[in-house]
């Protein structure tokens, strides 16, 4: 106590303890060095970049006059794309719904089950959906169905993980309250688990739907249906009018979905 109230004369003001070494400049320098190395290694030439950027204005102006003569076909393709995203998302939702409780540490019936399901989810998440689409196209043939499957498998990994983490954040007391009545595992999941995270889970699902619409519009590149293949072809044939129209159709659709799901999420939260 008296240590604090002691009166210091000007000469006896204690010096600051040695200043903790600030490593920020070191980190910054190291980061910049790494970035420089990367630029060097990727052989990104600034010339190309500068020319590219200078030409960009001219280049983009070629898309100035979108050619909507085929609009009805584009809209149909976009419809297929949206449907693919919807089916993929529902698939992911169903798989995530069943796997997540097994992958939540505090709910899982056995630590081994927990580890196993977590690894399965990780694997599904780690495989890019376009790679999965390639695989499914090889097995099922061309068309939107392999695309929907690919989206579904990949995003089931995401939803499963997000759901499991939400389930882990639920107060242990809520689980104990239901478990103390003698409820079994499925009952515990349905009464203490899902109701507690319902809003959060719906938010995640909308977010994934959003993401799947974006991805579905490029799945066509690997033959998995939708609008992506048409875009790929027109860009490759330097048909700027049609490319512009396709890009606009994709853009407007995605913006609409984006605003709609943001609005829904706000209402849920």
């Amino acid at each position: 106590m008296n240590k604090i109230s002691k009166i210091y004369t000007a000469s006896s003001v204690p010096a600051f303890p040695p200043r903790p070494r600030n490593l920020f400049p070191v980190w910054l320098a190291a980061t910049l060095a790494v970035l420089w190395l990367i630029v060097h290694d990727l052989e990104i030439s600034f010339e190309t970049l500068v020319y590219g950027v200078a030409d960009m204005g001219e280049y983009f102006s070629r898309y100035r006059e979108p050619d909507f003569s085929d609009l009805s076909r584009y809209l149909e393709l976009m419809g297929i794309t949206l449907a693919t995203a919807l089916w993929g998302t529902v698939f992911a939702l169903v798989v995530g719904f069943f796997l997540a409780p097994l992958a939540a540490r505090n709910l899982s019936p056995h630590p081994l089950v927990y580890r196993l399901v977590r690894e399965v989810l990780n694997f599904m998440r780690a495989m890019p959906d376009l790679l999965l689409a390639l695989v499914f196209v090889a097995a099922l043939g061309l068309g939107p169905l392999p695309g929907a499957l690919a989206l579904g498998v990949h995003t089931a990994g995401f939803l499963g993980k997000f759901f499991a983490e939400s389930l882990e954040r639920v107060d242990q007391g809520v689980y104990e309250g239901v478990a103390s009545t003698g409820a079994n595992f499925p009952q515990l999941v349905m009464y203490a688990g899902w109701p507690s995270i319902l809003r959060e889970a719906l938010g995640f699902t909308l977010y994934i739907l959003d993401r799947n619409v974006r991805m579905a519009s490029v799945l066509g590149l690997v033959g998995a249906g939708g609008i992506g293949l048409a875009l790929h072809d027109t860009v490759r044939m330097f048909d700027y009018g049609k490319s512009g129209a396709l890009i606009l159709v994709i853009l407007v659709t995605i913006l609409i979905i984006d605003y709609a799901s943001a609005w829904l999420r706000r209402r849920l939260g």
């Binding site: 107060d171 007391g173 809520v174 104990e176 309250g177 239901v178 103390s180 009545t181 003698g182 409820a183 079994n184 009952q187 009464y191 203490a192 109701p195 507690s196 319902l198």
Partner: peptide, 23 residues
């Protein structure tokens, strides 16, 4: 069991919480 922090499922209705006793 009755708990200090009640341990009800917040988002379920009162009836549903009571019905969990029947599970």
């Amino acid at each position: 069991m009755v708990f200090q922090q009640f341990n009800l499922v917040d988002r379920l209705s009162v009836v549903t919480n009571v019905l969990t006793g029947r599970l």
